[in-house]
Design a protein around this nucleic acid. Sequence first.
DNA 1: TTCAACCCTGCCGCCAACGACAAGGTCAAG
DNA 2: CTTGACCTTGTCGTTGGCGGCAGGGTTGAA
Lengths: 133, 133
Amino acid sequence: MIRLVPGVGRVRIGELATATGTTARALRHYEQAGLISSERAANGYRVYDETAVVRVRNIRYLLAAGLTLEDVQVFLPCLDGDVAAAPPSGKGLRVALDRLAVLNERIAAQTEARDRLAAALRERTGGRVRPVA
Amino acid sequence: MIRLVPGVGRVRIGELATATGTTARALRHYEQAGLISSERAANGYRVYDETAVVRVRNIRYLLAAGLTLEDVQVFLPCLDGDVAAAPPSGKGLRVALDRLAVLNERIAAQTEARDRLAAALRERTGGRVRPVA
DNA sequence: TTCAACCCTGCCGCCAACGACAAGGTCAAG
DNA sequence: CTTGACCTTGTCGTTGGCGGCAGGGTTGAA
């Protein structure tokens, strides 16, 4: 994560939540799953820097696309602007590529099923049904 | 379901399970979810006719493609060879078309996410990194 | 007869991604 | 100095698709 200055966007969990369209509960959950990290203020409150917003948005985007937290954990290092991080990290990279392959299979399976269902529905209606985008 | 003769493929749950690559437990679950039905022998055992095999395979196929039991329930009537069933049933049909649209959206979201991840990975192995969202 | 291999109906457990509390600490404003 | 809006940890609940086990009946074969 490499932060040279102590942090500019000192933001608490509630603010981060509204900024990312989620809830404090979910953010704690992500932290506990190892997807995000936080520092603590003197009073014990979580404090986030401004990079957290992008990170959480990435997480939400991937979750919304049907990925699991585990999947996201695999891909996140590739999404952070974390340029100085480990070099292409052959290992994590391969894991990510594997997951990507799994994603592709899943998409293919769903697409096939959808096509068959669409065909069945067309047959059911005597073929006079608008095509499915 | 229309069965003119009492049934040829009098088969019990275990056999149906192995024939469809699933388990008795799952079949009871499908029944309780209203996806399949069974008669009962004098001893209380479930008895299925041969159409059950195809039906269950359809179910498994759709589940494997990521559909829920509820989704499957919507589509099943269109998949049975149940030609003499209700006429195109404008209502159930529309529900099915709606679900199909949802499927399409889901596939689109996943495809988009996959493309972005793939792009990020490519950059990771070749060039600079850029966040997804 | 007795055994193994089936079947039955509950009902609890699990995984995921949180939601919804409880019971308490903190802090700025009035 | 009290309110009220924040925050903390902890634990239980929920939805979906079953797995697994308890406790019991049934049946064909040895």
